[in-house]
Computed example of a mutant assay.
Amino acid sequence: MKMNEGVEWALHSCVNLCWIPGRPVTAKKLAAFYELPTAYLNKQLQALTRAGIMSSTSGPKGGFQLARRPEEITLLDVVVAIDGPDDAFRCTEIAKDAPNGDPAVDYRKTCLVGSSMRRAELVYRRELAARTVADIVADVEQNFPETATSTRDWFVAQTS
């Protein structure tokens, strides 16, 4: 399964915004932090805004902020906002065209390959739904205690 690279960018942006609450940050500044293309990151941030994960304000003091508390934003919320809600595996019922296939059978319901893939995806989605942006922030702060301060300082220096 391959996720859009925008998922990584969006999650990092959410984490960074946790360390500068109440302060809108432009897509340009969020992109500059990781040397990402601003236009492409902006598309991801707009997707997060449409999903209610972020809010955006226009104007000279505008930018992006988290629209919900980090404890209320799951990793699955971000993945769905960026990659969409569709299942990663899509049964196209190729078994109908096999030599012993039956065109009258709904193989999406009976195919053991499809059911195995659905079960695996449910485990994957449950794990993503069980972890929040706040969990990541806490893990980063525990494992790399200087990160919150250095990130905050970097963004503050960009507005000075």
Score class of each variant (00 low, 15 high):
residue 5 E to V: 11
residue 7 V to G: 04
residue 8 E to Q: 09
residue 10 A to S: 14
residue 12 H to I: 10
residue 14 C to M: 09
residue 15 V to S: 04
residue 16 N to Y: 02
residue 17 L to H: 06
residue 18 C to P: 01
residue 19 W to L: 06
residue 25 V to G: 02
residue 28 K to Y: 14
residue 29 K to M: 12
residue 29 K to P: 03
residue 30 L to C: 03
residue 32 A to H: 12
residue 32 A to W: 04
residue 33 F to Y: 03
residue 35 E to V: 15
residue 36 L to Y: 02
residue 36 L to A: 11
residue 40 Y to V: 11
residue 43 K to F: 02
residue 44 Q to C: 10
residue 44 Q to D: 13
residue 45 L to A: 09
residue 46 Q to D: 15
residue 47 A to V: 01
residue 49 T to G: 10
residue 49 T to V: 07
residue 50 R to M: 14
residue 51 A to G: 14
residue 52 G to V: 08
residue 53 I to G: 05
residue 54 M to Q: 09
residue 55 S to M: 14
residue 62 G to C: 11
residue 62 G to S: 10
residue 66 L to N: 01
residue 69 R to D: 15
residue 73 I to T: 06
residue 75 L to H: 00
residue 76 L to R: 00
residue 78 V to C: 03
residue 79 V to T: 11
residue 80 V to L: 07
residue 80 V to Q: 05
residue 81 A to D: 01
residue 83 D to K: 09
residue 84 G to K: 11
residue 85 P to D: 11
residue 88 A to F: 00
residue 88 A to D: 04
residue 89 F to V: 06
residue 91 C to R: 00
residue 93 E to Q: 12
residue 99 P to H: 02
residue 101 G to T: 10
residue 104 A to H: 04
residue 105 V to F: 04
residue 105 V to G: 09
residue 105 V to T: 07
residue 106 D to C: 07
residue 106 D to R: 01
residue 106 D to S: 07
residue 110 T to I: 09
residue 110 T to Q: 09
residue 111 C to F: 04
residue 111 C to W: 02
residue 111 C to R: 05
residue 113 V to S: 12
residue 113 V to R: 10
residue 115 S to D: 08
residue 116 S to P: 05
residue 117 M to F: 13
residue 118 R to K: 12
residue 120 A to P: 06
residue 120 A to Q: 12
residue 121 E to P: 01
residue 124 Y to S: 07
residue 125 R to W: 00
residue 129 A to H: 07
residue 129 A to G: 15
residue 132 T to V: 15
residue 133 V to C: 05
residue 133 V to M: 03
residue 134 A to G: 10
residue 135 D to M: 08
residue 136 I to S: 13
residue 137 V to F: 00
residue 139 D to C: 14
residue 141 E to N: 15
residue 141 E to P: 13
residue 141 E to D: 12
residue 143 N to P: 08
residue 143 N to F: 04
residue 143 N to Q: 13
residue 143 N to C: 10
residue 144 F to C: 12
residue 145 P to K: 08
residue 148 A to W: 03
residue 149 T to G: 11
residue 152 R to A: 02
residue 152 R to T: 02
residue 158 Q to T: 12
residue 160 S to D: 10
residue 160 S to M: 11
